[in-house]
Design a protein around this nucleic acid. Structure first.
Lengths: 140, 140
DNA sequence: TTTTATGCAAAAGATTTGCATCACG
DNA sequence: CGTGATGCAAATCTTTTGCATAAAA
């Protein structure tokens, strides 16, 4: 099942209505390879859906966020989002084209244990993000 | 040499003036154990330095950021900063009290190599952040 | 004295809210 | 149909800029 279909199902299951606006926002979100902001998403929707208001984009994204269907990105000056798999995963970001690849394997667990021993913290979560240049951007 | 003194020296060396306002902003920044936003820093300064304008806080922090003297935090809804050691390091954040501990050892380099092999990326940087509860917050 | 920094006020952006209308289910 | 969703406009922030004044070096 596609990411898009999953998002729609989750919305429906949670008791929210599947309006044309929400469908369009989700389609645009899933279609974008790079993380989006509410503003950038609204701009992307404008050509095909000029009738969709910025407010609706804000509200739809807030909804998806509340349902835990988004993952957050922290690079750049604004917080941005992407439709994300609900499983724990890490990000690999291309500094050239901005595309994001997920990878779910290899959590730094030994490192986590070492840090717990050294600091006395009980560690409950971690985020790991690699950045660099993808194959195509290295050639360019 | 204290972090505070280092920041002042860096500013001076870069040719910027050491005004009372900048000294106060830097003092408050260094004093805070948790990451700050421009707004929170301005609020923290208000009792002792009501004369310092929000604009000056924005400008001072932008300056420190430009000189690479801050590190960025991504948790929460706003981007926040802390005076940071210029060396590459990772963060360990306490979800209880918000304090941050740096650690510089143990970069996930084998993992990085594995990801490079699997994806064809050339990886140039990474961020790793652990979060959990510090010793005192576990007891509480 | 010269150049830069500050603070106010205003402008520009970003986000949230109130409310009447519309439309999914 | 009824309830929740939308879109507009207005209200709130947040952040940036212009400009006259103040003060570091």
């Amino acid at each position: 099942m596609s990411t898009q279909q999953q998002l729609l199902n989750q919305l429906k299951t949670a008791g929210y209505k599947l309006t044309p606006q929400r469908r369009a926002v989700i389609a645009a979100l899933v279609k974008s390879a790079n993380p989006v902001t509410n503003q950038s998403l609204h701009a992307a929707l404008k050509p095909d859906h000029p009738e969709i208001g910025l407010v609706t984009v804000y509200r739809t994204m807030a909804l998806l966020d509340k349902l835990g269907l988004l993952c957050r990105f922290n690079y750049g000056d604004h917080i941005s989002f992407r439709a994300g798999p609900p499983e724990h995963h890490h990000h690999l970001v291309c500094r050239g084209c901005g595309n994001v690849v997920d990878f779910t394997d290899h959590c730094p667990l030994e490192l986590q244990s070492a840090v717990e021993r050294n600091t006395g913290f009980r560690i409950t979560e971690h985020t790991l993000e690699f950045a660099g240049y993808c194959r195509s951007c290295q050639e360019a």
